[in-house]
């Protein structure tokens, strides 16, 4: 029983990290058709933001609170710059955005290497988050509980943003029909930029969260980007609900198979499952119905 709970929790915890990494991606990928490989590097930027803030402020607790919004800003600004300089020109070429943003991610990684050095750095945990917490009598790391909670807050916030605010309405309108949205007086260009700001900002937040469970290195982004993409693809592009289900599912599957085999085998099995799953539902878990042929 204890094993089951701790395994379940480990799966959900992994899923929440994946979701945090993927939710911004889902927003930009799904809503704008832009595949941002540099999203992983925005995560890394968020992680280094947390590191830098802690270097300056010292106190682990305060710096965590400061770095969450700050990393959102850092990621968001990076995203804005990327959108304005490059991606805006290439909305019709999704595959090419993939490669262009890969180039950007190479550059950002090297920048991080030149600024912070290639070896990984560690962010100290606040007292409160360093110990274990008991859940149903099973000890689990408090930092992971915090991440789980943070993910819930972020995803709930994003759903509210999409469903209740005028920005969310505009984003949905542009996604459904760009022309019609523009004809109704919505600046699709500004909406794109804002979407990108929010999506990339969430990457920054994910970066801060990841510092709580591991060390930060220039290649941090590459570890998460592929899994994040899988979450987006399996969940159905642009579907927050789908991303939540897919992230939880992939996290649980990964941990489940890891239990029987090794982490690397589990990873391969999970990929096979995703490919097999796309056989059944090529459009992902949640998909908007279209009358398209594809």
């Amino acid at each position: 029983m204890e094993i089951l709970i701790s395994q379940l929790f480990a799966g959900l915890s992994l899923g929440s990290v994946l979701l945090l990494a993927a939710v911004g991606l889902s927003l930009t990928f799904g809503q704008m058709g832009v595949i941002n490989m540099a999203h992983g590097e925005f995560i890394m930027a968020g992680a280094y933001t947390a590191f830098t803030v802690q270097q300056i402020l010292g106190s682990a607790g305060v710096s965590l609170l400061v770095s969450l919004p700050l990393a959102f800003l850092v990621g968001g600004l990076l995203g804005l710059i990327l959108e304005a300089t490059l991606l805006r020109r290439m909305y019709h070429r999704p595959l090419d955005t993939l490669l262009v943003t890969f180039g950007v991610s190479l550059i950002l990684q090297q920048l991080a290497r030149d600024i912070f050095g290639a070896p990984s750095v560690d962010v100290r945990l606040p007292e409160l988050l360093s110990g274990p917490v008991m859940i149903f009598g099973t000890p689990v790391p408090a930092s992971r509980v915090f991440i789980l909670a943070l993910t819930v807050v972020v995803v709930a916030g994003l759903s509210l943003l999409m469903s209740r605010t005028s920005l969310g309405r505009r984003i949905r309108a542009v996604v459904q029909s760009r022309e019609l949205a523009e004809a109704s007086g919505i600046s699709s260009r500004r909406t794109d930029a804002l979407t990108f700001f929010v999506g990339s900002g969430l990457a920054g937040v994910a970066g801060v969260a990841i510092t709580l469970i591991g060390s930060t290195s220039p290649t941090l982004g590459t570890t998460y980007i592929v899994d994040a993409f899988l979450v987006v693809v399996a969940g159905g592009i642009g579907q927050i609900r789908g991303a939540v289900i897919a992230a939880a599912g992939l996290g649980l599957l990964q941990v489940f198979f890891e239990f029987g085999t090794t982490a690397s085998i589990a990873k391969v099995i999970v990929l096979v499952i995703v490919v097999a799953f796309l056989q059944i539902r090529p459009q992902g878990i949640v998909a908007t119905r279209t009358r398209g042929l594809a």
Partner: peptide
């Protein structure tokens, strides 16, 4: 299954990631 475009690109990329992990592991 007519999975194409970006989906294919991402799957092929995930394949590379999984393969490298498998070999290292």
């Amino acid at each position: 299954r007519r999975v194409k475009g970006a989906y294919f690109a991402i799957l092929s990329q995930a394949l590379a990631a999984a393969f490298a992990v498998l070999i290292i592991g």
